[in-house]
Design a binder for these strands. Structure first.
Lengths: 229, 229
DNA sequence: AGGTTCGCTGTCAGCCACTGTCATAATTTT
DNA sequence: AAAATTATGACAGTGGCTGACAGCGAACCT
């Protein structure tokens, strides 16, 4: 480190950009802490900005709205999940690839150096509970999930070599997978603190259980057969 | 109709309540018309209230927020769907019951006297497009769908005689079904106007196609088999 | 090293969604 | 007809969010 010229392949961070990253992290941390301690609605944007000693205007240059600051951590995690999914070999069955990617994401993000600040597994649990109990946040989170599903569908379509707009199966599979993960989130965040002590393995177990239920649930639903309208 | 005494089993409407219903309908219609003509964001609540000649404060006594007014029609439709689902006999396979209920809802709401005002099939199409292109509305709609899924899950659990909190399958099936319907909405609203001319049958066909794809999509996803972690 | 350019930030002003409060008018009840 | 209930309007205030402009410091060029 410390090369004077501009040669690094991964683009030198630059003092300016490092400061920006630090400001953003500080805002996310402050928002997270305030939301958890006094609630989402009772925390004003001015408070968050003041805690980091920037103006309210600057807050909105980092986040489009208050919700985005609250969901920033989840957004980063989902970004990581997308990368892991893209890593999987195309020969792998789609649902298996999804399963491995989501488990890898949870494991990595819990053990790696992402632990600092408000980015641990315990914090994730409290965040999920906060989201579930705050209508405005839940709405924003579901919208983000919908966008995420579009991206997943595109990746699946590319893997299988089918057209993403013509063939509805990638979208449907992505939606089903998203539903399973969301159901797992809900089950995990309401399951009491016993699960919490198990760390990421607890969450992974719940997700896998949901995925295992997919088949039986649909079979029990007798989805086939003619309806006769 | 026109009985003078208070004898009707379904509780006499009363002058007050009829007026309230008319105000609400007028607000929904005005909001719908303004949203479609000038866009959601460019329409202020004051405009909507002024169009019906009530105060802004009154608007917020009918709707918790601007989104709720936009989604009121969908909310009524989903209410009707829930009723149809509750009508289905418990012996019926769950997914078949869901399928019949959603098709019946679309058919009934298109042919019945619900056609007045902005409650036709054509209006539904434009509304779905508006929602899909307005982040704020999409978020609110997805949150409503999530609540709806909880209700559906409860009904399914009761039908099958299982515990709604212990057994995750009703929730999962409800989520999967919701995903299929949402995917169908998206496909229908972006399918061009050819579908629109087919009336409700076009929409129903798309939904049924999505449901038919559920099985193959999951089978192609190789959901079973051990992953080995 | 010097000056220039560019991008981040703060300040100010303003719109609009949304809420609490109280007075008033209309409806229902007795 | 009087009293209790309830919808509505008028008003004021909070807070999320945006546009415009100016200042300052990093980055880039010579």
């Amino acid at each position: 480190m410390g090369s004077t010229s501009t040669a690094a392949p991964a683009a030198a961070p630059g003092l300016r950009e490092r400061k920006k990253q630090r400001t953003r992290d500080a805002l996310v941390d402050a928002a997270h802490r305030l939301f958890l301690s006094q609630g989402y609605a009772r925390t004003t944007v001015d408070e968050i900005a003041a805690a980091v000693d920037v103006s309210q205007r600057t807050f909105f240059r980092y986040f489009a709205n208050k919700e985005e600051a609250a969901l920033a951590i989840l957004a980063d995690a989902e970004e990581y999940f997308i990368e892991r999914l893209a890593d999987r070999p195309p020969e792998e069955p789609p649902l298996l690839a999804l399963r491995i990617a989501v488990c890898a994401a949870w494991r990595d993000l819990s053990t790696e150096d992402y632990q600092q600040g408000s980015r641990g597994v315990g914090a994730a649990l409290e965040l999920l509970r906060l989201i579930e109990s705050t209508p405005s946040l839940l709405a924003a989170q579901l919208r983000r999930s919908a966008e995420q599903e579009q991206r997943v569908a595109a990746i699946l379509a590319a893997r299988q070599g089918v057209d993403a707009v013509q063939d509805p199966r990638p979208r449907l599979l992505a939606a089903v997978f998203g539903a399973a993960v969301r159901t797992a989130h809900l089950a995990w965040s309401t399951a009491g603190d016993r699960q919490r002590e198990e760390g990421p393995e607890g969450m992974i177990a719940v997700i896998e259980a949901q995925l295992d239920h997919l088949g039986p649930a649909l079979v029990a639903g007798h989805w086939s057969s003619d309806t006769g309208h």
